[in-house]
Amino acid sequence: MTKAEKKIIIIEDDKHINRLISYNLSKNGFRPESVYDGREAMHRLSGENFDIVILDIMLPGIDGFHICKSIKENPAAFKTFVVILTARAESQDKIYGNLVGADYYLTKPFSVAKLMEVINDLIALREKDFSIDTHKTMAKPGVSN
């Protein structure tokens, strides 16, 4: 499976940041999809299973925690990694992110290189092992600033 075949969705209402992430992912060989509000995101996620969801929290319509929770509660999306990318930097938000099952929590302002590293690592993890068990043990939520 090539990188281009990996399904990545960027859920981010700020157009500049959405474009920034999209541009860098494309540079890395991915073909990400961009969505700008919560309702649209829910619609897209219900129809398809993504490998990686880059998720903002403060979204118009439906907030990111809610979206993350619905992904993690969906058995069909068991392979989906959720990377939260948000301006909400309070520790209680990070704890809440953990509770709703986010696989990674990145706060804004973020390093593009770090985000790319996280995504590449998660993809590599998925490439290495397809078993559900491994997914469960390896996919511990990580936190980075």
Binding site: D14, I17, L20, I21, A87, T107, P109
Partner: peptide
Amino acid sequence: RTPVSSIKGY
């Protein structure tokens, strides 16, 4: 944080 992220990222 949002504009700073944008500036820093770009």
